[in-house]
């Protein structure tokens, strides 16, 4: 399984966290993987984005011009990254904050995930929105197994916040369910 994705949103939405988690999961499944975060002044404006490339073979470029996946958590990121998505690629949008009419392309596969609403109303924490979105992407793309993502949670969540791991699992499952996948 080979795939790549750009994830983007506001700083604080957990973009780098879920990108890192996806990369770690791919590594634990024995795949080649690269994770490249935006850095420096690019982050000072309050936006965050990262690129994850997963492959069964040695990975060349850690940065992609035409990603096969795009996960958009806020409106401004849509304008910047939508033109890059490869034709036929997967677009996951956080429809709580991004309006569907912003999706100006019809040559892609769109999955609208009201991530903030689900996180707030069904998980009980709006901070779980990015996990909902990641669950949806993992289920839609099949790039890694959802169960491996669960296994990797303790590696990215510090001991101090260990008690929130079940919340994260629930959030991932809710997202995956939206993609028609039931863990």
């Amino acid at each position: 399984m080979t795939g790549d994705i750009i994830m983007a949103g506001f700083g604080g939405q957990g973009i780098l966290m879920i990108g890192n988690l996806l990369a770690l999961t791919a590594m634990e499944e024995g795949k080649h993987v690269t994770y490249f975060p935006a850095y420096g002044v690019e982050m000072r404006g309050g936006t965050a984005n990262c690129t994850v490339v997963v492959s069964d073979e040695e990975i060349g470029s850690p940065v992609v011009g035409r990603p096969k996946g795009l996960l958009i958590m806020n409106g401004p990121s849509m304008e910047r990254f939508l033109p890059m998505l490869a034709p036929g690629g997967d677009l996951i949008i956080n429809s709580s904050l991004v309006e569907e009419r912003q999706v100006t392309r019809n040559d892609i596969r769109l999955l609208s995930v009201p991530a903030d609403d689900i996180a707030r109303n069904r998980i009980g924490s709006r901070q779980m929105a990015s996990m909902v979105a990641l669950g949806a992407y993992v289920a839609l793309s099949g790039i890694v197994k959802l169960s491996t993502v669960f296994d990797c949670l303790p590696k990215v969540i510090s001991k101090k916040y260990e008690k929130f791991i079940p919340l994260n699992v629930n959030a991932l499952k809710e997202g995956a369910a939206l993609a028609g996948f039931h863990a």
Partner: peptide
């Protein structure tokens, strides 16, 4: 450069 500096890999 910034790419090899900032990227993560196994």
């Amino acid at each position: 450069d910034a790419i090899v500096g900032q990227m993560k890999e196994p």
